[in-house]
Simulated scan of single mutants.
Amino acid sequence: MSKQRRTFSAEDRYSIVQESLRSGPSEVSRKYSLSPSLLRRWKEKYLASGKDGLRDSYPRVDPQLRILEEENERLKRIVAKQALELEVKSELLKKTPIGPRKR
């Protein structure tokens, strides 16, 4: 039997830590099938930073948002390339001498 990786929301972690502070960590870790070291880490984060310490340390990025960010980066590169081309062309025009026309 393989163990599945479970995820807990910040609210779940908070309620488990609160329960462990009331009932004791060994009882709670058995009840929720958590390792005592994980419960201890959650408790340390809670005591250090409060409820905010129990939030995920990495933000979950919406796939649609990621697609939009990639598109934004691609468009920024295009605009930068065009700006560079315009700058080079304007420099070339400045260097080109404009003399009297021959008839």
Rank of each mutant, 00 (worst) to 15 (best):
P97Q: 06
L84H: 09
L86W: 03
Q82N: 08
K51V: 13
A83Q: 05
V61D: 04
E87Y: 07
L54I: 08
P25N: 04
R6W: 05
V28D: 02
R55E: 08
S57P: 03
T7S: 15
P25Y: 01
Q64G: 03
T96A: 10
S57T: 10
S9I: 03
F8Q: 00
R30P: 02
S37Q: 14
R13P: 02
S20P: 02
L38I: 03
R60P: 00
R74Y: 09
L92D: 08
S90P: 00
L38H: 04
R103A: 14
W42R: 01
V17M: 00
K45E: 14
P36D: 08
R40Q: 12
P59Y: 11
T96S: 09
A80D: 13
V61Y: 10
S35G: 14
S49G: 12
G53N: 09
R13E: 05
E71H: 04
A48G: 09
S57C: 05
E69N: 07
S9P: 01
D52M: 05
K45T: 04
R74S: 08
T7I: 15
L84M: 09
Y58H: 06
I78H: 11
I16L: 04
E11H: 11
R22D: 02
F8L: 10
L92R: 15
L86R: 07
R66S: 00
L84R: 14
S33H: 13
G24H: 00
D12P: 01
S26H: 05
E73A: 14
S20V: 02
D52E: 14
L86A: 06
E85Q: 11
G24R: 00
G99F: 07
K102N: 09
Y14H: 07
L75K: 14
S20R: 02
S23V: 02
R22T: 01
S35H: 15
S33Y: 09
Q82I: 05
N72K: 14
K76R: 12
K31L: 13
R5C: 10
A83H: 02
K102Q: 11
E19D: 01
K89H: 13
P100N: 15
V61E: 08
S15L: 08
E44T: 06
T7E: 15
P97M: 07
K81A: 13
L47V: 14
S15R: 10
R60G: 00
M1L: 12
K81N: 12
S90W: 01
S15A: 06
L93A: 10
S29T: 13
E87R: 07
A10C: 11
L68Q: 12
Y14E: 03
L21N: 05
E70L: 11
T7V: 15
M1A: 13
L39H: 04
P63N: 11
E44L: 07
P97H: 05
E85Y: 08
R22K: 07
S9A: 05
R103D: 15
D62G: 01
D62E: 11
R103E: 15
D12I: 00
F8S: 02
